[in-house]
């Protein structure tokens, strides 16, 4: 057998997408409903009494941050459970004994996780239009950020799925690291609203770069951070995850004895 194992990649991708369809409520409906509640409470309810930010209604301002919040948590959750579950049930033997390379395996799992996240992101975007007025100044950049972020964080989730020894570890990073970073990364406010030294401290929050860049794609130059930094950071994080995954497969870390 030579060349790329296209059938193998497709088999993993289809399997993972089928898993999503089997758990449709949990996979797609729940995040959409949760985010819609944010729109109702913070966008339409409280947002109506908050003054516009850079001439953008508060309800609209938080849309990129909310999409990013879902995108990050869903990417990590989908990819981590995707690779953790075969480890948990023992079916990992089939993946390890198959003529499929590490790259092909990652493309299958990360591709499926990223697809799900992008679909959820787009559904949330469409839902937001029902609640708040919205414009997208740079649609191509928005799609690019959506794709880059979902792929990068799906890879991050893949790493967590391999690292995790139990369901608790699987949930600890999304719950205790990712969600706080997203909330403190300017999802609901511009970083410039924070007093010093918290404004400077926020610049060390990697998620702030993602949210700022994504917000730029919607509303132009209203972000806290230059869009080039945002793009550079997202690409850098993607490359870092690729490197870690390469190392995992090279050493067999928590996959092979």
């Amino acid at each position: 057998m030579t060349g790329v194992n296209i059938h193998g990649i497709w088999a993993i991708y289809k399997f993972e997408m089928a898993r999503t369809l089997r758990t449709l409520w949990q996979s797609i409906v729940t995040p959409v409903v949760t985010t819609s509640l944010y729109f109702i409470v913070f966008g339409m309810g409280m947002g109506a009494h908050i003054k516009p930010i850079h001439d953008i209604a508060y309800g609209s301002f938080i849309v990129p941050g909310l999409i990013m919040l879902s995108l990050l948590t869903q990417s990590v959750a989908n990819a981590s459970i995707g690779i953790y579950f075969p480890k948990f049930t023992g079916t990992i033997f089939e993946l390890l004994s198959a003529p499929i390379s590490a790259v092909e395996l990652v493309v299958g799992y990360v591709g499926a996780a990223a697809t799900k996240s992008v679909v959820i992101g787009l559904i949330i975007l469409a839902t937001s239009v029902l609640f708040v007025p919205l414009r997208v100044d740079h649609p191509l950049a928005m799609i690019a950020f959506l794709l880059l972020t979902s792929i990068a964080f799906s890879m991050f989730g893949f790493i967590i799925g391999i690292w995790a020894k139990g369901f608790e570890q699987l949930n600890v990073v999304p719950a205790l690291v990712l969600t706080p970073l997203t909330f403190l990364g300017g999802s609901f406010y511009p970083l410039s609203y924070l007093p010093q030294p918290w404004h400077t401290v926020s610049l060390f929050n990697p998620v702030a770069y993602l949210i700022s860049g994504f917000r730029w794609a919607f509303f132009g130059d209203v972000g806290d951070i230059d869009v080039r930094w945002s793009l550079g950071f997202t690409t850098g994080f993607l490359l870092l995850c690729m490197g870690v995954i390469w190392l995992i497969f090279r050493t067999g870390y928590r996959l092979k004895s």
């Binding site: 057998m1 194992n5 497709w10 088999a11 399997f15 898993r19 089997r22 089939e94 198959a98 499929i100």
Partner: peptide
Amino acid sequence: FSTVESTLRFSRGLFG
């Protein structure tokens, strides 16, 4: 949770 048929298709695909 897979069906018998789908798990066979998965294995066949995985092996290229």
